[in-house]
Design a protein around this nucleic acid. Structure first.
Lengths: 341, 341
DNA sequence: CAGTAGAATTATACCGATTCAATTTATTGG
DNA sequence: CCAATAAATTGAATCGGTATAATTCTACTG
């Protein structure tokens, strides 16, 4: 109502004829306030159009109700989906998210983490950007702010972690192709920059090895996880190898999309002439033609788990760091099929 | 360094042997502090490991350095990209973003906007969720917090707005097809739930009308924006109409991909037997065979513009609300061609 | 060298809520 | 009906900065 000066708790108290302490208790649903006065205060709040001011509160009682979330790359649908899960889990508990997009730059990431600290976040969720070192994270841990790492981890760092088993994901994907009779299986998207990348390549190699298969040279294509790079990778794969692969396991769905498009541009039909398997099961995967066979990483659930871990960490009593690893799940669609010939 | 009690500005002042006011001035880069004392204070800050506490500051000087961003649906890559742009523009100015994902629910949206207000955000950026009414937005405007709407708008609401001209996008797309000689042009993906949807259909219809063409019944297909729906839409389009279209303008690229696949499944080659045009210019568009002719909407730039508008609105002096509409840009590839026959 | 403009610094009230010991009011048992 | 106890309320100190008026320190002029 009032145009110029914001209504403060003091104004409400005055209007209702009680003390500020009482109003505060009403706002915090303190049971030791009489029903009669509670109503009185509530009416005053209504009447004056009072808006709770967290700045005042948080100064006194260190609780800001804010969580910092550092995202390695928000433009990547996978991490966007993880973020959705985090938001969902924490919003429910009344927390607000302050969010930073590192765009895979540790400088940006550090800058954001420092800002978050100044804003007195009660907890931090970190999807480490490429190049994040153990030292960096340990410095943050010294701040004594509850920290949960998500999706990627940093070896040796003692902290909560939520993710999906990347190693198992590529074992699953590769074994699926093996079961369909494929033997010449390539891997597109090798990338040693993150744990995610390293674990996935390891999974692929392990599955091939335990099937007793050699990986021909050139079958492991290093590249970034984008559609274009997948598109390029296929060309390389089919141009140079004497014996072209009959199936391609990809680092993630984005790459798989690129690979499928690349196959088409070479006159091959994905799923028929060459099987393609992705990882992530982003929303789009089901909408492709052919539908992409992929390994669901449950991005949104990862986010929710991160939220839950943080919630545990925020409540009093200190437990040792916990790692919550989801089991990846094979989703069979039409981009993979039995090897014919 | 200190383990238990956080170092405050007062501690720094004491250690450096100056007053709190001086320390505050150093922190705020106030030029009227002597170089000598500035260094002294800086050293003390370093030594004690002081961390700036915004809670204290914002209480006094109403500046929180926080902007609230309400996203209609973060899982949608288009809006995620817009968010990236917003982050980029505001992070640069030292603002932190508090973020809410409405998931297309006005209840969630309202809840978030209220929280943001309690957190004393200095500005709000709103991508309205489906079902947002004029009344809702006008209530927010009454809060006197600078507000910028993005991508979608609410007719009749007086506020800053950043987006790309959706009407022009479909005029451009349709006129491109008309120039190629097409007359029987269908539209796939009509959807009246958002201004985006309504404006695009309007653009298509206007272009057809000003070319003096009637739109045959069944030529405007209502459906959701997914590949699968595009795939289905084509079948409907070619099954029921006596005179099948020679070109299809689509609500967005995703649908266009579905349409292209649908055409193939009917034995037609997109770009040769039927032209297809999309909207958005997602990364994939260039990789398809044939490359998708589309209208670039520059999602990230929209976000940056929103950030810039807000920055203007935050600086003193009140101008009338401003609408920044990007000009969509036609990107011609191979999915559209001259009408032969 | 006095006088003074200007630069640098300080002291203190203040922002808006919370907290908790102290006080007032209500309730109950004898 | 009073004392004892429980319930409800109050008031002032407090959190950590910032603003500003007042003050001290410098440097320069005539």
């Amino acid at each position: 109502m009032n145009k110029h000066k914001r209504v403060s708790l003091k104004d409400v108290a005055q209007f209702a004829g009680v003390s500020t302490g009482t109003v505060s208790m009403v706002l915090n649903k303190n049971p030791s306030v009489a029903e009669k006065t509670r109503l009185l205060v509530q009416q005053a709040i209504e009447k004056l159009g009072y808006v709770y001011n967290r700045s005042g509160a948080q100064l006194r009682n260190r609780r800001t109700g804010v969580i910092g979330v550092s995202i390695c790359n928000l433009a990547n649908p996978f991490f966007a989906e993880v973020t959705v899960g985090i938001e969902e889990a924490l919003e429910e508990l009344g927390y607000a998210l302050i969010l930073g997009n590192a765009v895979e730059s540790v400088t940006q990431q550090t800058k954001f983490l420092n800002t978050a600290r100044e804003h007195n976040v009660e907890g931090l969720i970190l999807m480490p950007a490429i190049g994040t070192t153990r030292e960096m994270v340990e410095k943050v841990l010294e701040w004594q702010i509850p920290l949960v790492m998500v999706s990627r981890y940093i070896p040796g760092v003692k902290s909560d972690y939520a993710g999906t088993d990347n190693y198992a994901a590529l074992v699953t994907a590769t074994e699926h192709l093996l079961r369909l009779g494929h033997k010449r299986i390539a891997f597109v998207g090798a990338n040693g920059q993150t744990t995610t990348g390293r674990d996935r390549v390891r999974g692929y190699k392990a599955a091939m090895r335990s099937a007793g298969l050699e990986i021909p040279p050139g079958y492991v294509v290093e590249c970034e996880a984008s559609r274009e790079q997948g598109f390029q990778a296929v060309k390389k794969l089919f141009a140079t190898s004497e014996a072209p692969p009959t199936a391609v396991a990809c680092f993630n769905d984005l790459l798989a999309f690129g690979v499928m498009l690349g196959l088409r541009s070479l006159g091959m039909e994905p799923g028929r002439d060459c099987s393609v398997v992705g990882v992530d099961d982003v929303l789009e995967a089901a909408l492709w033609k052919p539908g992409l066979t992929t390994v669901a990483m449950h991005s949104q659930t990862i986010g929710q788990n991160a939220g839950k871990l943080l919630r545990k960490r925020l409540s009093p009593g200190s437990q040792p760091p916990e790692k919550v690893l989801l089991r990846p799940e094979l989703v069979i669609r039409d981009s993979s099929s039995i090897l014919s010939s």
